[in-house]
Design a protein around this nucleic acid. Structure first.
Lengths: 241, 241
DNA sequence: TGATATAGTGGCACTGTGCCACATATAAGT
DNA sequence: ACTTATATGTGGCACAGTGCCACTATATCA
């Protein structure tokens, strides 16, 4: 607990102030990076190379670099860039978890972010050469993980599903051009909830979020019109999906 | 930055691990405690008695007590209890802000909570005898404040308005018995948005959140039926207000 | 008794949604 | 060539919830 009580002026305080008076918890940032691969929701994990929890799967993340990071968001973006090569993801702070038991090293606080990236943008074999792995969300429940990271993933997953239902963040897992069916499928997977085709299309068109291109995507069946997102701005739907 | 790299076993790691290897930021918890006094939204402020920012208005909050607090929520509740005497408020984590410039003492991280309490439950002249003040939200913009606390209040205010529009947390600023008009007025102030009387009543009744009592409240005009909240559970409206 | 004030309701037009049948356009199979 | 499978895209209607506001109800005050 702090003890810097009896200074008479601001100057005296600043000169004599000793940061080590404060006993601080460990502070980390953890990232839950989601993407869609073959219509399967995946989360990026790394295998820990150091104690504690050496060898276990963990979320990418780590300590704030007090010298080079000037904000906590910068820490998060730096770590995401290092693991995926993606520079401008959708990223959002989920929650901060702090208690005395989550880390064997002692009182520990972590700020959890989730990010949404299109899989095509990921540079495989990242620069660090850490052992990274896209884990299917279906396998999260049955995998053993470091610290409380399984809980963290569940929190992020919940926030993701919720937010996708009333914003356009779902666009961020798709490539630049997509069909409305692909878009709908992505929303359905992210929300874990089936959607009605007609209603979905009506909403997307009336929200004016996409513009039709002069191209079609053709696989099986009738060729589908390709669209692109109209804006990068976060858009709130008037009503939830 | 951490340096605890070369341990061969977990045991060796735990024995030799030195927490001071880590350079940690300052970690605090700040509270934005809202209530309604005479149909005016207020936020609780304290006058700082120590450097830095001595004498300025600040949000109640402070350092985690690593010995007595076992979670960060416990820290928040402890501080709220100390300032207001309220034991079971509505409380919610808003966001965590961390950067190198917000505190003259150096890299600093704060986790911001907002709380909603009924004014009647507040024990005036709290045990610490700190100089505390209910500041009207209208005066926030024109008041000088410590650190980045004005921004913190604005963030909490925004979250509050938003959340009130699709949940029943607005109930928490009212006494146990209230009229529907009082309830509507409270929602309007918290959301900063006028509501339609008929629509509001329809929604409240169909959501089955209140039960009518055999009492009436009578001031001017026709006496109004008194109601009480049916449950403490957080309820999400199907549609926003 | 009538003015004023607040509580509470009736009722209708409008909007968005769920639903599902139908029309359209292509590839693949025979 | 024609059929079948498959997927895209639309038409249209019943239904539910909302906004709106005039109207009724019940009190106090002068």
């Amino acid at each position: 607990m702090p003890n810097n009580s009896n200074y008479k002026t601001e100057k005296e305080f600043l000169i004599n102030y000793d940061p080590s008076e404060f006993e601080s918890p460990l502070v980390t940032v953890d990232l839950c990076i989601f993407t869609l691969i073959d219509n399967d929701l995946k989360v990026l994990m790394v295998k820990r190379s150091q104690f504690p929890e050496k060898g276990k799967l963990a979320l990418p993340g780590g300590f704030i670099d007090l010298n080079s990071d000037s904000t906590i968001e910068e820490t998060a973006l730096r770590k995401l860039l290092k693991k995926t090569g993606v520079k401008s993801p959708y990223i959002e702070q989920v929650s901060t978890i702090g208690n005395k038991s989550r880390d064997p090293r002692g009182w520990s606080v972590t700020t959890l972010y989730f990010a949404l990236i299109p899989h095509v943008d990921v540079i495989e074999s990242n620069e660090v050469g850490d052992e990274v792995k896209w884990l299917s969300m279906e396998d999260v429940a049955i995998s053993s993980m470091a610290f409380d990271h399984k809980e963290l993933i569940n929190k992020a997953r919940e926030r993701l599903a919720n937010k996708v239902s009333y914003t356009d963040i779902g666009f961020h897992v798709l490539p630049a051009k997509f069909t409305l069916s692909q878009l709908q499928k992505a929303f359905e997977i992210l929300m874990d909830h089936k959607l009605e085709k007609k209603s979905f299309r009506r909403r997307m068109m009336s929200a004016d979020l996409v513009s039709e291109l002069d191209e079609v995507s053709s696989e099986r069946g009738r060729p589908a019109a390709l669209y692109e997102a109209k804006s990068d701005k976060l858009h709130f739907f008037a009503r939830s999906l």
